[in-house]
Design a protein around this nucleic acid. Structure first.
Length: 206
DNA sequence: AACTTCCGCAACCGCTTTTTT
DNA sequence: CAAAAAAGCGGTTGCGGAAGT
């Protein structure tokens, strides 16, 4: 025993709103206020779904919306809130008067992501990009390791071929690269040194 | 000037949560 | 309490204008 549907789906307009539709929606809400989006389209004489009316009002027509570019302070606030809340756009928007969740989401995807990348920060985790490559999932580590090794091998062997360096990359070097990439620089170097010491001890005992 | 590619943003889609009957 | 739709939310798409060739 539910409610009746909000609109007849086959008799609704889609796509961009016209000036006339905007005026009808503004006029109706000025007279009757927000709320009950289910009955609004019919009462306002709009061939739109209630959901579409709500979105248009909240994201575009509301009089308290702040128009224009985001300020530097707003940028930093969005970045800080995103680091705490993640992609909770509505929560982020509630801390920025006059801005909508949709607007902030779009702004994040078009501007702030790029800004963070240029600072060398991963926009999803807010961690430095270089650290990311060594601490993500095993699958990602393998991909990063494979790409790094392939590039290193190609460059080293080309340099060797052109006699810039006198020796090609060797098998132990591959393993050292893998270890450093998988464990990080510090841990990797420690592990390599320990391995070398063990090898030296074994050789001396033999 | 004509065409193509890129970019930003409004609107839609589909899912989850809340409300109503 | 259950069912069904509204409300709300976040991801994605597609259009229109700007920029590049």
């Amino acid at each position: 025993m539910g409610r009746s549907p909000c609109c007849e789906k086959e008799h609704t307009n889609k796509g961009a709103w016209t000036k006339e539709e905007d005026q009808r929606l503004i006029h109706y809400i000025k007279l009757h206020g927000e709320g009950c989006w289910r009955s609004l389209p019919k009462a306002a004489g709009l061939l739109r779904c209630g959901k579409s009316c709500r979105l248009r009002w909240i994201n575009y027509l509301r009089p308290d919306l702040k128009r224009g570019n985001f300020t530097e302070d707003e940028d930093e606030l969005i970045i800080n809130l995103h680091s705490l809340l993640g992609n909770k756009w509505s929560l982020i928007a509630s801390r920025l008067p006059g801005r909508t969740d949709n607007e902030i989401k779009n702004y994040w995807n078009t501007h702030i992501k790029r800004k963070l990348y240029s600072r060398g920060i991963d926009p999803q985790t807010h961690r430095p990009l270089l650290l990311m490559s060594t601490t993500t999932t095993n699958n990602n580590k393998t991909i990063v390791a494979a790409v790094a090794i392939t590039i290193t091998v190609i460059i080293t062997n080309l340099l060797c071929l052109r006699r810039v360096i006198t020796f090609p990359i060797t098998t132990p070097t591959y393993y050292f690269i893998i270890i450093i990439i998988k464990l990080g620089l510090l841990k990797g170097v420690v592990v390599i040194i320990v391995v070398i010491i063990i090898i030296i001890i074994i050789m001396m005992l033999l």
